[in-house]
Amino acid sequence: MIIRLAVIHESEKVTKASKQLLLEIKNRNHSAYYIRISKLNAEITEKGIEFTYSGKKVDIDGGLIRNLGFISTTEQFIKRLDVLRELERSGVVLMNRPDSMLLARDKFASLMRMRRAGIPVPNTALVEDPFEVMRLVERWGEVVIKPVVGSLGLGSVKVSDPDIAFRVAKAILSVNQPVYVQKYVRKPDRDIRVIVIGDRVLGSIYRISKSGWKTNIAQGATAQVLIPDAELEEISLKSVRVLGLDYAGIDIIEDVENGGYKIIEVNAAPLWDGFEAATNINPAKYIAAHLIEKIRR
């Protein structure tokens, strides 16, 4: 049976990860489509709820949601989420599920969910008062201020001076954004990225910083294969289950002062260039296979 699958993204130019996913779908002799979320619509008609893409009826069995695009208004966000939720209710199997993806995208909400489940995470706060940010720096010493929704390490700053923290917070609050503050955890010049698909750890890598404290591959870090120990596998699998995800990239640090691991965030649509280069494993192959398996159940 030929299964009709879509990779859902917003980029006008198809990204490398999306290309790999489309290729893996085609390699399995299924139909592959690239759908921009801004052009995907739901219509209420006499027949019920119908879906269109650039004026044509959408008829797919499953979809891989990679990105909701740049969201400039609450209304735009609601429209895109409403369409995906209704698409799922209609019987289309989506990975990751829209609500789980939304939870993972919200760094603070996902950390609170994991903390309640007993998963180790750093001390974190989300505030709307620059004086509160000053108090957090005075209490925690060194902190990282980062976007509550973001990726690739962009926009994150490390601060130990309460006055500088106040100025950074004022700048963020001036554009009506809350301030996401995380206690800086002393770690080696590296972090860990674990890729989980389904109920298995596909692999893990160290992301080693060439200079500074940021360890994102997009910020110039290099990747090295890591054989995960039992604790690393356990917290990675548990975090994916707790957030209701089918696959994810988990960012983890080693706490050199207190020992053990701490999860920094869980990415529901991870990039994998560094992982693939270090491990010679293409996650797209396993992600496509997992979605097809879910549809066939």
Rank of each mutant, 00 (worst) to 15 (best):
residue 108 F to N: 07
residue 106 D to Y: 04
residue 115 R to K: 13
residue 84 L to I: 04
residue 111 L to E: 06
residue 106 D to G: 04
residue 140 W to C: 00
residue 84 L to K: 00
residue 138 E to M: 11
residue 113 R to M: 13
residue 96 N to I: 12
residue 118 G to S: 03
residue 134 M to Y: 08
residue 147 P to L: 05
residue 112 M to G: 08
residue 130 P to S: 11
residue 104 A to S: 10
residue 76 Q to K: 13
residue 131 F to V: 15
residue 121 V to R: 07
residue 86 E to S: 12
residue 105 R to D: 13
residue 89 R to Q: 15
residue 118 G to Q: 05
residue 113 R to F: 11
residue 81 L to K: 02
residue 117 A to T: 00
residue 145 I to D: 10
residue 114 M to I: 05
residue 119 I to C: 03
residue 146 K to Q: 04
residue 99 D to L: 14
residue 147 P to T: 09
residue 96 N to V: 12
residue 86 E to L: 14
residue 109 A to V: 01
residue 99 D to Y: 11
residue 108 F to Q: 09
residue 81 L to E: 07
residue 79 K to N: 14
residue 137 V to H: 00
residue 115 R to D: 02
residue 132 E to G: 12
residue 88 E to A: 13
residue 114 M to T: 04
residue 83 V to Q: 07
residue 75 E to H: 01
residue 95 M to V: 14
residue 107 K to T: 00
residue 140 W to Q: 01
residue 116 R to N: 14
residue 110 S to G: 04
residue 84 L to D: 10
residue 125 A to H: 08
residue 76 Q to V: 05
residue 134 M to N: 07
residue 81 L to A: 11
residue 130 P to L: 01
residue 110 S to T: 09
residue 100 S to A: 13
residue 116 R to E: 15
residue 103 L to P: 05
residue 128 E to R: 15
residue 131 F to A: 11
residue 146 K to T: 01
residue 85 R to A: 14
residue 116 R to W: 08
residue 140 W to K: 08
residue 87 L to K: 03
residue 129 D to K: 06
residue 127 V to H: 09
residue 133 V to L: 05
residue 76 Q to L: 12
residue 122 P to F: 07
residue 124 T to Q: 01
residue 119 I to T: 02
residue 83 V to R: 07
residue 134 M to W: 00
residue 110 S to Q: 09
residue 123 N to S: 15
